[in-house]
């Protein structure tokens, strides 16, 4: 169980992006999170993955604080995969920075062996996003924060990516927070949905 309790966070003193946000994500659970742009969805997502420290409130994994060093058990997946990988590295090295997925798993994500020798700019956005998703699935990762990862993808690539991720998540009992705008997509993927408005979370009917 990943549990955020009463989180408050702002970039400037006196100005809070998140105001007393509480959220629980269980293993194997898929939760959708939507909200207008600038509502703080991404901030909340990054915070859960340890990229921000809350000004107030607590973040716990199975009732224990999250580890400050080492592989973070909650991984954040950003919208633009081109920014999530070092443009000077080959795909093989990019994957290996987190872990070494075997050939079978690579194949499930449609990552051909010869991609490993290529540079990020030689792959399309959809291809690179699959690399970024596979990279985040290192053993020890328990929760994924998928921050609009398919909003730049065409429908086929989007369906492929989510179906594959859903299979793996089921096998490994991963909890997934899906951040996005597309209500149809969120409805497809998630058991229930939340909405971030004025720095606070509301349950979607």
């Amino acid at each position: 169980m990943l549990e955020a309790r009463d989180i408050t966070l702002g970039y400037r003193p006196g100005d809070s992006v998140l105001r007393g946000v509480s959220l629980r994500l269980a293993a194997g659970e898929w939760v959708g999170l939507s909200g207008a742009s600038g509502s703080g969805k991404s901030t909340l997502g990054r915070l859960l993955a340890g990229h921000h420290t809350p000004r107030r409130g607590s973040l716990r994994l199975d009732a224990a604080p999250l580890p400050p060093h080492g592989l973070h058990p909650v991984q954040w997946l950003p919208q633009v995969p081109e920014l999530a990988v070092n443009p000077r590295w080959r795909i093989g090295r990019i994957l290996a920075e987190a872990w070494t997925p075997d050939a079978a798993l690579r194949r499930r994500f449609g990552i051909a062996d010869d991609w490993l020798e290529r540079y990020p700019h030689e792959l399309s956005g959809g291809e690179l996003q699959r690399v970024a998703v596979l990279r985040s699935l290192a053993p020890g990762v328990r929760y994924l924060i998928a921050d609009e990862i398919s909003s730049m993808l065409d429908a086929i690539t989007q369906a492929e990516l989510w179906q594959t991720l859903a299979e793996i998540a089921e096998q490994r009992d991963l909890g997934v927070l899906v951040i996005g705008h597309d209500q149809a997509l969120l409805k497809r993927l998630c058991q229930h949905q939340l909405r971030l408005e004025n720095g606070q979370l509301w349950a979607e009917p």
Partner: peptide, 15 residues
């Protein structure tokens, strides 16, 4: 056709 059917509010199908 596959593109149309892959939309999440259609089949969400992986062709």
């Amino acid at each position: 056709r596959a593109l149309w059917r892959a939309l999440p509010d259609n089949d969400f199908a992986r062709p």
